[in-house]
Nucleic acid binder design. Structure first.
Lengths: 204, 204
DNA sequence: ACCGGGAGACGATACGTATCGCCTCGTTCC
DNA sequence: GGAACGAGGCGATACGTATCGTCTCCCGGT
């Protein structure tokens, strides 16, 4: 029979949790996502399969949690408040270019690319995981764009009659498009071009 | 031993090919992509598994070919030359809105959504399939945008100093972003907003 | 005779479930 | 206050199922 009782989280082993995270990330980097099976993760982490099945609904959920934890640790090192800072030098175009260029570098980094692609792909097919992916990994960054764009509106650097949400997608959308679909290489020049065109517009 | 000799394509059974296409499309629509296994396709098509393995490298390749065939048949019905027409009424904004709205409708159509999502997800992880997906399904549409934008430049409706490729991605990128990541619902209003903002720009 | 096609057996994984002892807790009873 | 006692998570592993990709086997058309 299936055990439908929810496990007691207070008795959960933190060491097993971390070992599973580490094993998942290592395996994705070493052998790729398709071969990062639950059995392989369990073996590598020195953990029983049931310990994974007890706490996570799917292989992708394990990787997502591990990856989010990785990001949090990285963010905790540099900043004090945990949220990355979005530059505001008063020059909107320059600030956006700086951030988009940094995003380009991150997306081109093989260490980030493998797990991010795997999670994005899984999220595209599975709405539940997709929502979690967006909420935990993507949305926090997008909110920083929105805040910067609102500041720009108040400072008169951007039209006041636009929805910051739509404006932000005009910048991030093309970058994501090119990266996910690999239509053309993702470069700093492309990031700059997007910002220039988005701000000035395509009309004469 | 593995049979490395390429099979003789001239003796290939066209009826088996079409039966496999139909079975793949029907299964994706009925039970979803994960359960559209090669064995299920073979059984449904009344075909031996080896017949699939002989001609296609992967399950995704089967579905991609079937889906492309579907699109070609649909295009062949309406137009005479096989390529969809991109409107050119002289009003660039109106033309772009019409096409983006049509794209929104297509992406929101469940019959198109399931296979397209599955193929996009597979292509994100597998570069070979991704390239084929882009070349066979996406690029033909994008070329129509590029052509319309070049016409707009010659007619003075768009800045002459922009690369049509980048301009096109400014329009298509946000739409794809929202659809793939499901951040917010995909509506006609959103399509219109993208066109307006892309043409006018975000700067005051 | 050759070769593609239908059918399906076959070994190899990976899945998800079910137990088995082991260990660590908090509780209870003297 | 210290020992006995559940409860429950943990490592480990056996189990049945599903799918993979390969390998025959025989049939039928050319």
């Amino acid at each position: 029979m299936a055990d439908n009782r929810p496990p007691d989280a207070s008795r959960r082993s933190e060491s097993a949790r971390r070992a599973i995270h580490d094993a998942a990330l290592a395996l994705v980097a070493e052998v790729g996502y398709p071969r990062t099976t639950i059995e392989a993760i369990a073996a590598r982490a020195g953990v029983g399969k049931q310990t994974i099945y007890r706490w996570w609904p799917s292989r992708a959920a394990v990787l997502l949690e591990a990856f989010v934890g990785l990001g949090e640790r990285a963010a905790g090192q540099s900043g004090t408040d945990g949220t990355q800072a979005f530059p505001d030098t008063g020059d909107l175009a320059a600030d956006l270019k700086a951030v988009l260029r940094a995003t380009v570098d991150e997306l081109n980094d093989p260490a980030f690319e493998a797990p991010t692609r795997a999670l994005a792909a899984e999220g595209i097919v599975d709405p539940r995981l997709g929502a979690e992916f967006v909420q935990k990994l993507l949305e926090p960054s997008l909110q920083l764009y929105a805040a910067r764009l609102r500041a720009a509106q108040e400072a008169g650097q951007a039209r006041a009659d636009i929805d910051p949400r739509t404006a932000l997608e005009l910048l991030v959308g093309p970058l994501t498009h090119r990266w996910l679909l690999r239509t053309l290489p993702l470069t700093h020049e492309y990031a700059d071009a997007i910002v220039d065109h988005a701000l000035r517009g395509l009309a004469p």
